[in-house]
Every structure is written in C-alpha cells, then in structure tokens.
Amino acid sequence: MESRPLRYFVAVAEELNFARAAERLGISPPPLSRAIRALETELGAVLFERTTHSVALTPAGTVLLAEARPALDALEAAGRRARRAADASPKLVLAVKADGDGDLLEPMLARYGAEPGALPVQVRLCGWREQPDLLRRGEADVALVHEPFDRAGLDAETLIAEPRVAALGAAHPLAAEESLTLTDLGLRPEEVDRYIEEHRHAGRDLAQLLTLVALDCRTPLLPLSVAARYPRPGVVFRLVADAPPSVLAIAWPERSRSTAVAALVRTASAVALTGTRSP
C-alpha cells in the first residue's frame, strides 16, 4: 500500500466531503474519487458510504483511519530522522520544558559531552506535554518529560521522583504553616493530576503562573526543584507531605537504534543515580 492514497483517504475521512478534501490536497475531486475507489479495490473493502448529500465512514474505514494516521506520522518521522542522520554535522535533539528538567539538564549535558565520540546536543525548549509528539514526529531524538505522558511508540526510563510543594501567596492563610497536606488544599489523591493540569493551563509559563500565585489567584503544586530554582518575592513554597511525587523520565522512540541516544540515556540515568544537580 502506497502512502499517497492513504493521505487522500485520511483527508476525505477527516473532511467527510470530497470537494473540501480535494481542495485541502490541492487536486480536483475526480482524481481523488478515483484514488479512493482504487484503494477500496486494493483492500477489497468499502471505506465510505456515499450519498448525494453525505459521506460517512464504514466500519472498515473507521479501522483504516485509526491505523493510517500513526502510519503516515511514522513515515514522516522516518524521513526527518533520515535527513538529520545524513547531515554533515550530525547532532542529537533533546526536548525539554524550560522549568521541567529536575535540575539534571546541565550536569547531564556536561557529563555526556565529556564522553569520547559524543555528538553535539541541541536543546529544544517546548511546552507542557509537547515532548512525546516531538519524539514521534522525528523532531527530537530524546526528551526529558514528567509522568504521566502518552507512551505510544516510545520507550522511557524513570530518572527521579521528587516531592511536591504548594506555591502560595505570602498573604495566603496556609502560608504560615510549615508543611501542608492534600486535605489542607481541599484535594484527594486521585484529583492531583487534574489539579496540576488546570494550573499549568492558567499561565503560559512559570513566571506568569507565579505572578498569579503572588496575587493569591492560584495555588499550584510544583516539583521541589522548581521551588529551589525560582524563588520569588511574595511567593512561599510549602511541602505537601502526602502528595504523590513528581516523576521525571527520559524518553526516546522505541525503534531508535542510535548509539548516541543510548549513550545520552545512560548518562542521564547515571547523573540521576548519583544525585548530581545543577547549582
């Protein structure tokens, strides 16, 4: 099965309209219809129920759509990785959120860079939860990412688990306490992940989020390393003793055969094991 008819199929399946799909693909409707008919003949299955007024996926079409999207993504990712591998100056691309490295990034890169044959590492800063998609699309070779995350198509190794702290405005009633519990914050353990996601979306970045904290508009849960690295006037951090830990992992595409990626993963694990952190 070739990729072009699959791309045509996905366009029609997403638009459920041959004219709109053809416009999206930059072709006219007749050759698009012929390509879909040819694909159905090749598969021996009807993919769309067509009437004069509507287009709908058949059960076979629904299955193919679920399989075709990751297959096309994998093809594009393979092309990106091949082009980078053919580069005259090969490098590793490491995806990480700016405040999400658990203080491991600098010592990890320094230790890896000292190894014989180490490749240059390009750090790609990204947003919350963007790392897995960058790996799957072939735009990054390895990533530091907090769990939980979508592991589809990826391998990962846990690096560190660190306590969580609550960020509070200095005038917040709980700021006078030495430590807190989830009950103090009105939370149950099963609500922590949702609570963290809600506060992550409240600010575009950590600086904006801490501004909201100082104004007593937010009380996010953060990894202890973030509190240590980003002190801010008007904000206090209090340990939440019974909160689940913040777990940082290193992830890479499960089909990667790169010895450089393997070396960087080993280095990250060694740095995490020795407890070496950025000052």
Score class of each variant (00 low, 15 high):
143 A>R: 01
27 I>G: 07
222 L>K: 15
11 A>S: 11
38 A>C: 03
119 L>H: 07
116 P>C: 12
250 I>W: 00
119 L>F: 05
20 R>F: 03
179 S>C: 06
69 R>A: 04
168 L>F: 12
2 E>L: 03
239 L>Y: 09
149 F>W: 09
88 A>F: 10
137 R>T: 10
25 L>S: 06
178 E>G: 14
233 P>E: 14
111 R>K: 14
207 A>C: 04
266 R>F: 00
69 R>N: 03
151 R>N: 00
217 C>L: 14
10 V>F: 07
86 A>P: 04
122 Q>A: 14
144 L>D: 00
156 A>S: 13
63 V>C: 05
172 H>D: 15
236 V>E: 11
225 S>M: 01
163 P>R: 01
132 P>N: 07
273 L>A: 15
164 R>A: 09
98 A>Q: 06
177 E>H: 11
62 T>G: 13
210 L>Y: 09
65 L>F: 13
11 A>F: 06
173 P>A: 05
143 A>H: 02
21 A>K: 08
236 V>F: 13
271 V>T: 01
271 V>D: 00
263 A>S: 08
162 E>I: 10
278 S>D: 11
199 H>Y: 15
256 S>C: 04
126 C>L: 05
57 L>A: 11
4 R>N: 07
263 A>K: 00
104 L>F: 04
203 G>R: 04
70 P>R: 09
104 L>R: 01
56 A>F: 12
225 S>Y: 03
134 L>D: 11
239 L>A: 15
232 R>G: 06
56 A>S: 15
56 A>N: 15
41 T>K: 15
72 L>R: 14
10 V>N: 09
141 D>R: 08
31 P>R: 04
236 V>G: 12
207 A>L: 11
134 L>I: 09
47 L>V: 11
261 V>F: 01
97 K>N: 07
266 R>L: 00
47 L>C: 07
8 Y>K: 14
157 E>F: 10
81 R>N: 07
132 P>G: 06
252 W>F: 10
216 D>F: 07
39 L>P: 01
175 A>G: 03
236 V>T: 14
124 R>D: 06
101 D>C: 02
45 A>E: 15
226 V>K: 13
233 P>I: 08
251 A>Y: 00
23 E>F: 04
204 R>M: 14
178 E>P: 07
143 A>N: 04
266 R>Q: 01
